[in-house]
Design a protein around this nucleic acid. Structure first.
Lengths: 324, 324
DNA sequence: CTGTTAGCGCATTCAT
DNA sequence: ATGAATGCGCTAACAG
């Protein structure tokens, strides 16, 4: 910056003001500064700026996993809404590990991000990571939460989602012919937990339940397991679209008819239309609304608003060929 | 840090040396420092450290898009290999926009990342972004490249991939009965470009070609278009698994038999096994090798090695039910 | 509107 | 092995 100042024949303060636009500068001088900067190939050092301003114009997002298409969709949407802002969204993935999650949070906090969005890996074991985050910066939990914290939490109303599935089944399905089974995820995360609870509330506690992970391969395996157990017809309610896609593949692979013999219902609403055949009946999460709400709360990178700490968004049932 | 020093009864230098581990410190003093830091809830400010050290122990990754499962898989794998390192991998998505891509690069460069990995959005129009990156820090292009730059480039050998598809078709397919069609992406990116070239080299320039984008919805539309044109049987070679999945869905949706009437062959090797039914025949990219090579080149965050600038990795053909 | 200067938090001299 | 002091690059406070 001193070089630019010298080259333009002004002080470093004028260079700073020109480049950061924080104070008015004489147009003629500004012109010379910009020319000098351009000529010298000067780029402002944001580390220096951050140290001085004690803010970074950066929001961090820590996701459990980028392979899960719902998480990558959330990341993509969040990045999109922050693009209209002057803050940058940076993403860190925990690769499914609690250690990596904590490391990601510590890294962001140490780098002085202005705010943190996180999808906690685990309902209880991520408490540390969330606490570290929330103690240091405005933090909002997305999609999943750790109950033992007072950090903000934005997610879909999972119980309501399962109610919608219940209503669909009640009006469209002969459950005597196609009894309901749940293929979900171990209740390690609040979303898996709430969806399981929601399922039981909607369909009763005696309905069969198979629990695994949020992955297509688990869905695939669960389908095989159902067939091995002798199921001939069922309405398979799942905890996620990825699981549903795996179930669907497993059933079709075994030559079963969907939806005639087996119905399949997803949850999330990601790529249900073009990725699956038959198209997936599912519960759509209002991802756009959720990400916009986060941006508004963090206000382009800062003050923990006076908004309610927990905000549940209403899901919508999406019709599909897997359960007409 | 001054507070910690006071509390521990030592100088700030000793605190710094204890916390950063750069110099030996008397165990007794170190103990007191750690206790004081813990008690005061002190966390090192990485912005200050970065300013002083003129490095950040950070590598940036700029992807065009997180919705494309191949890109998110690359991001995930890259993050995984950097987890074994002391540098943090931060991801920025361009949301398909050249402006956002340039902004992401500028942001990372301004934040003084030690190195940059990027998957350029566009074969020519991303030249600016790549140049800005490469001028400032060690930069490696992944999967796609801009020809007008001397930055490193690591990718699969796309032409070789199409040769593998050619060999598969030559030995397994009666092309008189199931003639070859290509459903690819507009050659805006080097990968789309090279795969199209590779296809033409392997199958001749007279083979029909449909070009769109790297998305399932394009694949879906392409399938419909083929059927509208009156195709009854074909071997559909695609430029990506997402496209192939869309084609597959479109064909099945129209009641066509795969692979009896239409064969479908993907490219990438991401989630081909569990996401599709029938399982997808495809060309697998050695993603682990590629990401490991990047880590080794950037050496945990730094020096542009003496390695060859361009490195093409060998793909492998993966058998699948869509083209037995 | 412009220039001078202090200091953001830290790691690293240099001296001990 | 430790402490005192310097400066990384920048912006904000102050004076003009």
């Amino acid at each position: 910056m001193a070089d630019v100042a010298r080259q333009a024949g002004v002080s470093v303060a004028t260079v700073s003001r020109t480049l950061s636009g924080t104070r008015p500068v004489d147009p003629a001088l500004a012109e010379r500064v910009l020319a000098a900067a351009d000529q010298l190939g000067y780029r402002v050092n944001l580390v220096g700026r951050a140290l001085r301003q004690t803010r970074t114009s950066t929001v961090g997002l820590v996701v459990p996993d980028l392979d899960n298409p719902f998480f990558s969709a959330l990341a993509q949407h969040l990045a999109r809404v922050f693009l209209e802002t002057d803050v940058d969204l940076l993403v860190s993935t925990a690769d499914g590990s609690l250690d990596a999650e904590l490391r990601g949070v510590r890294s962001f906090v140490g780098r002085q991000v202005d705010a943190l969005v996180m999808i906690p890996v685990h309902e209880r074991d991520s408490a540390d990571a969330v606490a570290v985050a929330a103690r240091a910066v405005p933090t909002v939990q997305l999609d999943r939460c750790v109950p033992s914290t007072d950090a903000h939490f934005f997610a879909v109303n999972n119980r309501r989602g399962m109610e919608l599935v219940g209503a669909h089944v009640a009006t469209r399905v002969d459950v005597a012919r196609q009894p309901v089974v749940y293929v979900g995820a171990e209740p390690d995360s609040s979303s898996a937990h709430e969806r399981l609870d929601g399922f039981r509330r909607a369909f009763g506690t005696e309905a069969p339940v198979l629990l695994g992970s949020f992955s297509a391969s688990w869905g695939h395996e669960a389908a095989r397991r159902l067939l091995d157990e002798g199921w001939e017809r069922a309405t398979v309610v799942t905890a996620a679209d990825v699981i549903a896609l795996g179930v669907l593949g497993g059933l079709l692979h075994a030559g079963r008819a969907v939806p005639e013999e087996f119905r399949v219902i997803g949850f999330d609403g990601i790529g249900a239309g073009t990725l699956a055949h038959p198209s997936l009946a599912t519960v759509r999460q209002p991802v756009e609304e959720m990400t916009l709400a986060i941006r508004d709360l963090l206000g382009g990178g800062g003050d923990q608003g006076e908004a309610e700490r927990h905000h549940l968004f209403d899901p919508v049932f999406l019709d599909g060929e897997t359960s007409p």
